[in-house]
């Protein structure tokens, strides 16, 4: 998936309802209530946090180009896609951002140190400049290598075979696998900068970065089968066990212990609005979430009905029709509605 396709995919989902900067926050993985809640409303899970280091200027340039080519219509308030943009055919993507949350980079960093080490040691070179200097990462890789007995040429060969077979099975274009491989280094083989890879392909650096992330997501999916034992340890801490943010998880725990929303806010010394965000997140992720604690049944039905009739998820529109509902109740109802439909 190219970067522009990513932006348009998100924009299609939130067209006329969110600002042009909302895709930026989503792609960066901003953990605000608004962003987290939008993921559930608009089914944006694949795109969350796929580029945590995305630069605002780079993003704005892409937006300007969309305006310049009339894919975006001038609109001060919200994203306003033109017919051409709405009709753009975007191939299905293997992105799985909600699951990996930027942790795929941890996997890549481990892999690149392991490959660099094996590349040298298997060719009898025992001293080299590691591509990563982070102490914890180096310690992790060292421990891993010792555990698998990396000096045994048979083990190095098996590692290579697992790499070859699992990446081979990943469901992305072969040329994208090459881009990923170009970020790995070995004896007398340098890595390529994003810009160098992009120049070779006639792409933008953002495209190359995104394609590599997508390749990693597709590859991780293959590796999660457990059929590649040497790679299993590399997944530790990369795959999110729960789809909740850590903070929401803590709120969930307290809620299940019987604390009320206000009590949780007091105990955790957080604003009630933050705790409300957590409940919206819980509602989106837990099909068994009991909303009736917060919204009477009939009010819940009214909210979902208006949202469906008017085809809107804008809180203000719904609030105008149902002044008795609080914003929190509306947000919660919309979150729940998505998951039971």
């Amino acid at each position: 998936m190219l970067f522009e396709e990513l932006v348009i995919s998100i924009m299609k989902a939130v067209n006329l309802e969110r600002t042009v900067s909302s895709p930026f926050h989503l792609i960066k993985g901003k953990k605000s209530g608004q962003t987290i809640q939008d993921i559930g409303y608009y089914r944006l899970h694949p795109y969350f946090a796929v580029m945590p280091k995305l630069d605002k200027n780079a993003y704005d340039e892409v937006i300007q180009s969309l305006f310049a080519r009339n894919l975006l219509r001038p609109n001060e308030q919200v994203i306003d896609l033109s017919e051409a943009a709405l009709g753009m055919k975007i191939p299905p993507s293997k992105l799985n951002g909600w699951k990996y949350r930027g942790n795929e980079i941890l996997f890549l960093n481990r892999l690149s140190l392991i490959v660099q080490t094996l590349s040298h040691t298997s060719q009898s070179v025992y001293s080299f400049d590691p591509v990563h200097n982070a102490v914890d990462l180096q310690a992790w890789v060292k421990e891993y290598l010792v555990r698998i007995d990396f000096r045994d040429p048979g083990i190095a060969g098996r590692f290579k075979k697992e790499l070859h077979d699992s990446l081979g099975a990943a469901n992305v274009a072969e040329e994208n696998k090459m881009m990923l491989m170009q970020r790995l280094t070995g004896l007398r083989l340098s890595g390529l900068t994003w810009e160098q890879i992009a120049a070779g392909k006639g792409l933008h650096t953002l495209d190359v970065q995104l394609e590599v992330i997508e390749t990693l997501h597709a590859w991780l999916e293959v590796l999660e089968s457990g059929d590649f034992p040497l790679f299993s340890p590399l997944l530790n801490g990369v795959v999110q066990r729960s789809s909740l943010t850590e903070s929401a998880e803590r709120t969930d725990k307290l809620f299940k212990q019987g604390l009320s929303l206000d009590e949780i806010a007091a105990v955790r010394q957080l604003k009630t609005s933050t705790i409300e965000d957590h409940f919206v997140e819980l509602a989106m992720n837990d099909p068994a979430f009991d909303y009736t604690v917060f919204i009477p049944q009939d009010l819940f039905r009214s909210i979902t009905k208006i949202s469906a009739q008017r085809n809107t998820k804008r809180l203000r529109d719904i609030k105008e029709m149902l002044p008795q509902a609080s914003y929190f109740q509306i947000r919660l109802a919309l979150a729940v509605k998505e998951d039971i439909s």
Partner: peptide, 13 residues
């Protein structure tokens, strides 16, 4: 291609 680069990185078996 990526298989060739992998072979260059890890010239094993």
């Amino acid at each position: 291609n990526w298989q060739n680069r992998l072979n260059a990185l890890l010239p094993l078996g």
